[in-house]
C-alpha cells in the first residue's frame, strides 16, 4: 500500500529545455536514485504553481512535490515491493 510521508527532502533535479527531472533525493538517511519519471503534472495553489513527480527507483514508487513559490521539495508518498 502507498504510505503517506509528507516530509521535506533534499532533491537533485535537472532543469533543462523547459522541463524538470528529479535525479535523486535523500530520505531517512538513504539516497534514492530516480530510475523513471512515470508522470509529471502540476496545479496552482493560489498563484503558486506546485509540481508533482510520480517516480520510481529499483525498489519503490515515490511521489515528490516541488513548490515553485517556496522552492521546497516534499516527499508525499512512498510504496515498496
Amino acid at each position: 500500500m502507498t504510505e503517506e510521508i509528507n516530509e521535506v527532502v533534499p532533491v537533485a533535479c535537472l532543469f533543462k529545455n523547459g522541463e524538470a527531472r528529479p535525479l535523486k533525493f535523500l530520505w531517512g538517511g538513504r539516497e534514492y536514485a530516480v530510475k523513471a519519471v512515470n508522470l509529471a503534472y502540476s496545479r496552482f495553489e493560489g498563484r503558486s504553481k506546485v509540481y508533482f513527480f510520480a517516480v520510481s527507483d529499483e525498489t519503490g514508487f515515490f511521489k515528490l512535490q516541488f513548490d515553485s513559490g517556496s522552492f521546497v521539495w516534499t516527499l508525499l508518498e512512498a510504496q515498496f515491493q
Binding site: 502507498t2 512515470n38 508522470l39 510520480a54 514508487f61 511521489k63
Partner: peptide
C-alpha cells in the same frame, strides 16, 4: 490508466 501510469505497483 493514469493512476497505473503514475504508480507501477
Amino acid at each position: 490508466s493514469v493512476e497505473q501510469q503514475a504508480n507501477p505497483f
